[in-house]
């Protein structure tokens, strides 16, 4: 069982470290063949327009879509959530389009509006989680198969659809590993 963290750009190192702390086999991947060698993939925080362009230019996007067709669990945080979305408000930027959701970028405002909050997340036990939002997106529409996991002020900030998990915040920037454990349970279910 091997988790890949897409490392074209962004805070991939924090994600790798988070899974290492849990004793899971994990590696940073930025080539199509490396992506295809994974059993699950994490799309990190970063700039979604930059990561999207690099995905197209270097054939990495096609590899991720192949991996998705094999049923591999994929988790996107922040920029990663934008890349998973089918629709992005007021943007024609490239995206994977794997989740039946619409997202709004920078939905809380510019950087000075970035914040931390304690948040209850469905399926994550043992009380609220400290969450870090940085120029974060939100989900403004969900398809019928999408399960909402968390909201801030009525804005959806975490959701799951089958093999896909999206979070607008950054669990990798805190020391709480419960969202990573949630994703590992998704991976176990997909293998079982």
């Amino acid at each position: 069982m091997r988790i890949g963290v897409l490392s074209l750009q962004g805070d991939f190192a924090e994600h790798v470290q988070a899974f290492e702390e849990l004793g899971v086999e994990v590696s940073a991947v930025k080539r199509p063949e490396a992506v295809l060698a994974c059993d699950a993939l994490v799309l990190p925080g970063g700039e979604s327009t930059t990561i999207g362009k690099l995905c197209v230019r270097f054939g990495v996007g096609e590899a991720i879509l192949d991996l998705a067709r094999r049923g591999a669990p994929i988790w996107g945080t922040c920029a990663g959530m934008i890349l998973l979305a089918r629709e992005i408000e007021e943007s024609d930027q490239w995206r994977l389009g794997l989740m039946d959701i619409t997202v709004r970028r920078n939905a809380f405002g510019r950087q000075v509006e970035s914040f931390e909050a304690d948040l209850e997340i469905a399926g994550v036990p043992e009380g609220p989680l400290r969450t870090v939002f940085i120029r974060a997106p939100v989900i403004t529409r969900i398809g019928p198969q999408v399960e909402v996991l968390a909201s801030v002020e009525d804005k959806i900030v975490a959701a799951r659809e089958g093999q896909y998990l999206a979070t607008a915040f950054h669990p990798e920037l805190t020391t709480d590993r419960r969202v990573e454990q949630f994703f590992l349970r998704m991976l176990e279910q997909s293998n079982g």
């Binding site: 750009q9 970063g46 922040c78 970035s114 909050a117 304690d118 870090v132």
Partner: peptide, 21 residues
């Protein structure tokens, strides 16, 4: 409890820019 512009928010944006130009 919610808190704006924390140190983690500030350094976090810098982390998001890694590997970029």
């Amino acid at each position: 409890m919610s808190e704006k512009s924390t140190w983690t928010n500030k350094v976090g944006l810098a982390e998001m820019l890694r590997g970029g130009v």
